[in-house]
Design a binder for these strands. Structure first.
Lengths: 355, 355
DNA sequence: TGGTGTCATTGGAACGATCAAGGCGACCCC
DNA sequence: GGGGTCGCCTTGATCGTTCCAATGACACCA
């Protein structure tokens, strides 16, 4: 029956697996060797408890001996699932300290592996973020998506939701209270509050804020943590804040202006990028971060970790985010009980020389 | 080939493409609607020039109307190809300035998309790098691999080669001259030579080297560029070099020792991480990078880009690397003419305040 | 003895695409 | 006019798995 009567016992197994024949073994090969039907082998893999223990053992042995792994394409075709999770990556951000992606991607890959999924990366069209999603969806190449760039209004989310495509967002649906898709996010306000309290505890009173433009939901959220902490100690925030683009140059300018006009002794920034701008200004003026002026950033990027004298920074629990994202995905794709629509995780503070 | 002749006719339709039925349309659906056989539709997609123009148009119209995309699982099963490229990502490196991966991954995704491939990420077992590869290979989940971490002797390469699995390495097979697999690499020696000459041109004569441990092939390669440039101007290198671990702390210590013992006016480093260590030492001593002492790093990481006053750094042409990698992959997988076994690309120098 | 139920296993039929042949006109050429 | 070639399209078979319904074996109980 089987097209290959060879590789009976031979193939003394190499270090890891029996050497791969020109064409890999199939279910039928295993079945023949174990003296059972194909379906039984399939059950041995997918529903082992359906088999009698001795049959299972015999099948297992055949599987090991042949080094069999189910052909994914065939399985995908039959089950209408690819066990792949699609994730769009934007262009690498240069000239910023943006470090979120690297860490998150790795955590996601690691976590989804444990859940039996792989991560498929795809590049998005800069103009129309939809195209990549559409293709993968129509060709049933992925089971679900992880959407990450939900900063200001995210067309993908609405589009995917309208399309009834399974996806989990890293980031709240800020301006879409009616959204029903699962999401995971980090409590940015709690992070900046943590940072501000840290500075307050060290005796700082005049703590300035450098954040993002007002149309950024995330930026406003982070800002609120700072002002909340300040107001909790009856400290004024008027004239102590600046909202700019997320670039080093903007942070540099903003901090120069604030230093002249508001005389702060510390800065809390919406990003490490902006914080690096502050460090530039300090250097320009011969001031030393952590001695004359304290600085705290956001994201705990590599930059924060290696720049002298070390930049204190709010650290997002990206590993936990990944875990929650995968949990939500599993919920979507049927397996375990689905949970609530959103999960909000608290960040921590990585303290270094700059404060 | 391109089943999307739309795009012209509009985002309007592409944006909210024909609503997806519960189960997506199949080849047979399209065939029925166009009044042709399944095979003809298949040809319309894969070999359009086999059809008469008017038939092709009719099929195309049916495809567009139904919003059809071939089911990948079915296609993969039949053609024994997944159009996926596997790439293992190691744990995110914290506390270093290592920035290669982010940029390279993005370039690779972008480039391979143009070639009709997607990138599948997988996490490797830290202990045994093989396991991830083995699984994917046996289940025919990927067509080929891109192997990136070839720093010191790479077991994956030998293993994959023995297994006759198609793969392209980013990095030379340093210690395996007999290796026959395609590879792409950046000429590290040329990079450090560029950096050293840059400093020499600025009048520096006492230029120190901080590199990696001697068992690192890449480290020795980069070092050779520095010593070549020095010797070309009859400058001595004795006592001007230090080989350490690739950490900020090591760079810091090494630069302190070198400053005391060799009195250099400039440092060339094997990595941005080490260069950041130098900046730490300079800060410790109240020295200013770019004014008192020049520093050059390697990799043009985000750190180099944003740290004050800007770290001059050797920049690897990762976009070009990705292009060459994909070219080599296409060669392996049959399509165009295969080229030579290896490609070596020259880096450039990103000049900033530190020099 | 025969009916009934449970359990382990089986054979056939999908899943949706491509491959390998084959059909069938139209055309051409001796 | 027969035979060959070409262009265009169609029909079955097939990739390797899982779903579905059915089978045989066996025990239990009336």
């Amino acid at each position: 029956m089987s097209r290959r009567t060879d590789d009976a016992l031979g193939r003394a197994s190499a270090r890891f697996s029996p050497k791969l024949p020109a064409t890999p073994p199939t279910l039928a090969d295993v079945a023949e060797r174990a003296g059972v039907s194909r379906q039984t082998v399939s059950n041995a893999i997918n529903n082992p408890d359906l088999l009698r223990p001795d049959t299972l053992a015999r099948v297992q042995e055949a599987i090991d001996a042949l080094g069999y792994s189910p052909n994914r394409a065939a399985r995908n075709l039959r089950t209408r699932a690819s066990h792949l999770i699609g994730m769009r990556i934007g262009p690498a951000q240069e000239g910023t300290a943006n470090a979120t992606m690297d860490r998150f991607v790795h955590s996601l890959v690691e976590t989804s592996r444990e859940a039996g999924y792989h991560v498929l990366l795809f590049a998005g069209d800069a103009v129309d973020p939809i195209v990549g999603y559409d293709d993968l969806l129509r060709s049933t190449a992925v089971d679900a998506f992880v959407v990450t760039d939900t900063y200001l209004g995210n067309p993908q989310s609405s589009w995917l939701e309208a399309r009834r495509a399974p996806f989990v967002a890293f980031g709240r649906p800020w301006n879409h209270p009616e959204a029903r898709h699962p999401w995971v996010d980090v409590d940015g306000a709690a992070g900046t509050e943590l940072a501000t309290n840290h500075l307050l505890d060290r005796g700082h009173q005049r703590i300035a804020w450098i954040g993002w433009r007002k149309d950024s939901f995330i930026g406003e959220d982070r800002r609120s943590g700072w002002s909340r902490a300040m107001h909790a100690r009856d400290l004024s925030t008027t004239g102590m804040a600046c909202r700019v683009e997320d670039t080093v140059a903007s942070g540099r300018e903003a901090s120069a202006v604030l230093l002249d006009q508001a005389h702060p002794s510390a800065f809390v920034c919406a990003s490490d990028t902006l914080a690096m701008g502050v460090l530039h200004t300090l250097r320009d003026r011969g001031l030393r971060a952590g001695e004359n002026i304290a600085v705290v950033g956001f994201d705990d990027s590599q930059v924060a970790q290696v720049v002298p004298p070390g930049l204190t920074s709010v650290r997002q629990p990206l590993e936990d985010v990944a875990v929650e994202v995968v949990k939500a995905l599993e919920g979507l794709l049927g397996h375990p009980p689905a949970v609530g629509p959103g999960v909000l995780l608290p960040p921590t503070l990585a303290m270094r020389g700059s404060s």
